[in-house]
Amino acid sequence: MEKLLKELTAAYGPAGHEEEIREVIEEQVKDYVDSCYTDTLGNLIAVREGAGPRLMVAAHMDELGLMVTHVDENGFLRIARVGGVVPHILVGQRFVFSNGTAGTINHEKIDELKELEWSKLYLDIGCSSREEAAEKVNVGDVAVYDQEFKNLGQRYLGKSMDDRVGCAVLVETIKRLPRQLPQEVIFVFTVQEELGLRGARTAGYALEPSYAVAVDVTRVGDTPESLVMDVSLGKGPAVKIKDSSLITHHGVREIMFSLAEKNGVEYQREVLERGGTDAGSIQLTREGVPSGVLSIPCRYVHTPSEIVDKGDVENAVNLLEQLCLYPWKEV
């Protein structure tokens, strides 16, 4: 699991540019599923065939990034955010492009931290002219956090745990599932979640699932003077009740609770005040899809240093496996 998570978090794949991470995941799962394909927007769809209802399980492949909007004559790059990146955590951070070009963020002279706006930030890739920079990078290219994966003992530290940890949970589950399933299960590694739950929407429309479960990270309330939130790291995966994108379906939620209890999987109940997941999109496709969310508690979401707990990840796999084995009823 550690090796898998390390490989997945290391792969390049900002929202809208998921080619590399998609290849990595496809390589991992293709021998364990009946078919595997990529749709128009770039979602990777891995199908485990079966009779009966159709369960869609989604985790998003995309990560945050910075897009180059301008290259100046001295070779500095100006940038805009791709997804929910905030300026104040960027200064001094390293970023890397898909071709390996690396750089660091800094800012124009400012008097106070609150003046730190996007137009004041730039990315220095060590070039001294526009021409030199243009050999490495073009306007429109996107850079991602350059951070190494670390094992902290009981916890993992790294970039893009959101939502590569969810992808890892799906991959691991796919590998563990037995030959026979009580229904068709379609695993979807979605694109552009960070830009507004986009990939899940078109995949949800195309696949017409009977039920959907999204696997994503959630925030925690167990750090010093943090927001009020009843989810902690290390107390098991969380079953979402509400976030800004959806109120999860009662039926789906109850099945998740009861499977966790029956199988002795420690879990938490999640109410996330701000933030959304792919399930929010899927739930509203066509005439509505009963949807739930399995969340992996994660500290410092959207920063270059996100932390997840090994036990939580392991238990998320256990619970997702049970969800795939559970005989879902026809709607």
Partner: peptide, 17 residues
């Protein structure tokens, strides 16, 4: 409203729906 946490003393924290 929705309960976001049950405090040790039994008070309930909440968010709005």
């Amino acid at each position: 409203l929705m309960v976001t946490r049950v405090e040790e003393e039994g008070f309930l924290r909440f968010t709005t729906i």
